[in-house]
Amino acid sequence: MTAPPVPRVVEAGLRAFQCAYERYVEEPFRLGQFAVVREGPCFVAGVVTDAISGPEDPSRPLLPRGAAGQTAAEVMAGNPEIRLLLRTRVSVVSCGHIEGEVARASLPPLPPPLLARVEPATAAEVVRLTGDCAFLALLAGAPGCDDAAVAAAVRAAASVFGPGAHEFTVRAGKELARLLRAEPARLTSIVRGIGA
């Protein structure tokens, strides 16, 4: 088997972008994962807020194939064309950008280039982008980023801090409390998601 395809930017904006794999993949970027586009004048970083898979051609809907008892993998193996006719798209909300040695938790000056590769952020990049928790302001204010995505992003960021994960999570909680003091229900929802 060849290596899994690399997703590429197919819709680009300053606040959000979408990337797509060239075929269906069962395990795309995960909810809350940090992704980076390392092409263009600066690296654009974002958090995965949604992933959706389905037919590329809307006139050819996916039919429920497969015999009783067959797993999805078995049905895929028996219909090798299907994976190529499906696409997995991932939505990413911008949470910062990196220019040289400077990481900023603010909108990038330019959208990421269309068709640029989208890659997982390294642990070092995540630490630089999230250490001061300023990225949460962008996420909490982004229309495409719901409570579950914010909570997943905090969990994903905490996981790279190693022994400092708890300290980071507390810091993130305080920042969220400050940002969402007028929205207690939302704050509760996110905090519960972080603890999940």
């Binding site: 088997m1 060849t2 193996a77 028996g78 090798p80 064309e81 994976r83 190529l84 006719l85």
Partner: peptide
């Protein structure tokens, strides 16, 4: 179909 080759369209 069971040959292990890569599918292509």
């Amino acid at each position: 179909y069971g040959t292990g080759q890569e599918a292509a369209l």
